[in-house]
């Protein structure tokens, strides 16, 4: 009997504690800066074009082959009277979010810091009715960064706090 009383007391003691749950769809937890949802492309606000040059490095490094990258000549390059120093630029880009395993490798291999993991709730709440809707095209991948709605965290491998 003593043991049972003890376990009932344990349960009782939780009444005096603060709740640990959240009213989820109404209340969102603040996500840490490093949170990894799905990869996004970043927008170069200065020159007003994507950072991505379509170099295929991420596509080749992706373990599940969920990316497709096509590049083109940059119409805004200096040689043709533009303002950009990027000779090549991304033409088409697809990421299949249904296949992506959020491993962060694409972010690590990119030499242009053009891709980052989405660390906002939009990256987590991606339910759709059809799997096909999870294939994101260039415009969808860029929109969040273009609108300035993301403060991305792009790690350098092996970096320390100093």
């Amino acid at each position: 009997m003593k043991g049972i009383a003890k376990s009932l007391l344990t349960t009782l003691s939780t009444f005096s504690r603060k709740p640990v749950t959240r009213d989820y769809p109404n209340v969102h937890k603040t996500l840490p800066e490093r949170d990894r949802a799905f990869p996004l492309l970043l927008w170069d606000q200065e020159i007003d074009e994507p950072f991505c040059t379509g170099c295929h490095a991420c596509e080749r490094a992706c373990p599940v082959e969920c990316m497709t990258v096509l590049m083109k000549d940059n119409p805004n390059h200096k040689s043709v009277g533009g303002t950009s120093s990027r000779r090549k630029i991304i033409d088409k880009f697809w990421i299949d979010y249904a296949r992506c395993m959020r491993c962060n490798i694409c972010v690590e291999v990119c030499n242009f810091d053009a891709i980052a993991m989405n660390n906002t709730w939009t990256g987590h709440e991606t339910s759709v009715h059809d799997r096909k809707d999870l294939v994101m095209d260039l415009q969808m991948l860029l929109s969040q960064s273009h609108a300035g709605a993301i403060k991305e965290w792009v790690p350098v491998i092996g970096q320390t706090n100093e």
Binding site: L31, P32, R34, D35, R36, M101, R102, C103, N104, E108, M117, N119, P155, V156, I157, G158, Q159, T160, N161
Partner: peptide, 23 residues
């Protein structure tokens, strides 16, 4: 999650050490 960015599939240890520093 604060350290590695993910809640279950961390991909944080790398051959040689760690991917990035802890917070």
């Amino acid at each position: 999650e604060e350290i590695s960015g993910d809640r279950m599939m961390y991909a944080y240890f790398r051959p040689g050490g760690l991917a990035w520093d802890v917070t």
